[in-house]
Design a protein around this nucleic acid. Structure first.
Lengths: 163, 163
DNA sequence: AATGTAATGTTATAATATAACAAATTTATC
DNA sequence: GATAAATTTGTTATATTATAACATTACATT
């Protein structure tokens, strides 16, 4: 029962987060090299902090952590890094939470749909062709040209339902 | 070419906004009567201001207008009214804009998908069964229980494409 | 090294939203 | 109708999220 459209699933107990994080940073380095942009230490650290878990992270929480580490001192520092990472497709912003998560497939151009668990806070990312298609088809039938989509489903993940 | 799933279409030049607004207020009165809640003058006025156009309205713009009219003086006034109207399903919040629009079908329980024109700013509301179904089915297949959905499509409406 | 560009620092402020408590208004009960 | 209870609104203060504007530093190119 493979499910290609899930870019970032909800995590099991045995999720090997260290390697998961390393892979994310690896991909970020690759992405930036091929784009000819600079993944500076600051930007890299912000990405690393966002990837600290699979929870959405708030800008000012990042700022607090950076301040503790004596790097990045004020809001613009963080927001500029976030803007950079968003533009490079390395992270996503969740509009319904004003928070940020790492992108599950940074090397692949895609749009996303997010599942947000209201109990544990974890976020899963998918890019489902059926969802994309039905939305595109509908928009098109109304003469609407789609430029971007915000799709965030709030609810309860399997683990939390199981209790 | 009826399209039942469109609760609030993009508007033509000949859109009769006065009657549109009156209908919205009428429905709000009905809704509140049947729910046994109070559509106070303040709440009614906020709803009216939101229905002033089919553009999303910002909380602090509402506040400015209320101040001009010497009713409602501080942010909590506005936010409380907005919370009330949201709870009653008389308005919706657009998460990607931090702004509010009137609900196209307040008397009918529904979820919504929004089309937001980046050129003219107008918003259309739909509740399309195909979209709902594909999202629900997908969530379900992942063991996810849906509680709420945020679906906002940004792009260009037909009028703006035509120029 | 000199120069231009990109990135970061710094200060200030804008924009969005809520907490906490007081006063007024409405509703329910006597 | 007077009183008590509940709801709504007022008021002050503050929290949270984000950007503007300009200075400084780091890096890249010549």
């Amino acid at each position: 029962m493979a499910n290609d459209s899930v870019l970032m699933p909800f995590k099991d107990r045995d999720h090997a987060h260290q390697s998961c994080l390393e892979k994310a940073l690896d991909q970020a380095v690759k992405n930036c090299e091929s784009s000819g942009v600079r993944l500076t230490p600051l930007r890299r650290r912000v990405l690393e902090l966002i990837w600290g878990s699979h929870m959405p992270v708030k800008a000012y929480d990042l700022l607090d952590q950076l301040r503790d580490e004596k790097i990045g001192s004020a809001p613009p520092t963080v927001y500029r890094s976030l803007d950079f990472l968003l533009e490079e497709g390395l992270i996503h912003k969740l509009q319904s939470l004003n928070a940020y998560v790492g992108c599950g497939e940074p090397l692949k151009h895609h749009t996303s749909q997010f599942l947000i668990c209201r109990d544990c806070g974890e976020v899963a990312e998918m890019d489902d062709p059926d969802i994309q298609q039905v939305l595109s088809r509908k928009a098109e039938s109304l003469g609407f040209q789609v430029l971007d989509k915000t799709i965030e489903i709030q609810g309860l993940c399997e683990k939390c339902i199981a209790g």
